[in-house]
Design a protein around this nucleic acid. Structure first.
Lengths: 211, 211
DNA sequence: AATCATTTTAAATATTTGTTTAAAAAAACT
DNA sequence: AGTTTTTTTAAACAAATATTTAAAATGATT
């Protein structure tokens, strides 16, 4: 039978499963999520997950690859954008904050699954390759040569920025417990944190009067 | 029968189980680890894990609390040490790097388990309480009042430091994949990263000639 | 309407899971 | 020595797991 492409009000079963699987996998991880969890979240029969995707592993990899793309694509785009280094750094930080805000457990999910099974990344090597040669790297080197910023390895700098932003959300549950924060208070905290990160990184780089 | 406290060459079964459970839980997490995994790693019968600890959950909590202590105790001690703010920041960073080097998956383990089940932290609330009033916090405020450092919220500062260091190890497997690093190359990278973190944080704080 | 392929369902499959049992082995004590 | 307690073992347990099966329901095409 031909594929039926017109049923806008309804959601195709395959999409229902993917949406539910994304939700459940991101919450509980591969090991913690069961096929029944996913079927229940999607409101469908258990057998359907294996009818559309052949196995739990295949369904997981489908979601995982989506998440890897979501994780990388925005940053890669900004890294290659033709804007000043200063603007680029600010935009990188703000983009990451927005991404994390919309997907609070994206990073812990990815980090955990890669930690458990690094080979899974091999399939997503495409997005990864894009990171090796970016305009950002060139801009950092040029700025250093011109004496506009302190001498710094661009990979170290990039890592520092990403760590500052993303760890905030990796540690969100622990942070809220330790400091007895509500969701709203944590939100406010992230805003302050973003300000500090931007201020610290740009000040460090561009205030070159000393040393 | 009385407890036998003298058998130095041999390892008591209870300790063998704890050691194996620590290894397996840190590698696979609570959901990914099975009782049989642990028994096999300890070289003992499956029933013994439930003989000494009453359940998988109880055994896990035993390990988890140990890890929480390991995670916090060193830092809390340094935060209250009677040394200068500058020395304290450097020591904090270096201590964390050492801790992470010795226990590469300590942080991802804790963050993941807390994310899955935040109530688990309640049992470890003792260590957490210690963080609310530290000498570090006082020192930061004093230094700001004296104009020695830039005005900064001590919690934001602390978070920034911890994030920079710990995320490096949370993302270690992904980092090695992306940048095609060997274990040795990653080690060297962490050394450079430590240098940048210390330089960035201290420069930002203490170079107050501007603004 | 009849036929066909597609989708969905309930039930069953074989494994694996955490945990328990009851007996054996080892150790401690009298 | 014999007796009791502690430790270890092999086997079994029920529940949960991912996956499959075969039949029912649905939808499209003729």
């Amino acid at each position: 039978m031909k594929r039926d492409m017109n049923c806008p009000p309804f959601q195709k079963t395959e999409e229902k499963i993917k949406e539910a699987a994304k939700k459940v996998f991101l919450e509980k991880g591969f090991d913690g999520a069961t096929s029944r969890d996913i079927a229940e979240a999607a409101g469908i029969n258990i057998a359907l997950t294996n009818y559309y995707f052949r196995s739990k592993e295949k369904l997981f990899m489908n979601i995982f690859e989506d998440m890897i793309q979501l994780f990388f694509e925005g940053s890669v785009q900004i890294l290659n954008k033709p804007i000043s280094l200063r603007d680029k750094i600010v935009e990188l930080i703000e983009h990451d904050f927005e991404l994390m805000k919309k997907n609070p457990n994206l990073v812990i999910f990815i980090m955990n699954e890669v930690h458990r099974n690094p080979e899974r990344l091999v399939k997503a090597i495409g997005y990864i390759k894009q990171l090796h040669h970016t305009l950002f790297k060139v801009q950092v080197q040029e700025a250093i040569d011109k004496g506009e910023i302190r001498p710094v390895n661009s990979l170290n700098l990039m890592t520092m920025i990403v760590a500052s932003v993303q760890f905030l959300f990796v540690s969100k549950p622990m942070h809220m417990q330790i400091w007895q924060m509500s969701e709203a208070e944590f939100d406010q905290f992230t805003i302050n944190q973003k300000r500090l990160i931007i201020d610290m990184v740009t000040s460090y780089l561009f205030e070159t009067e000393k040393a």
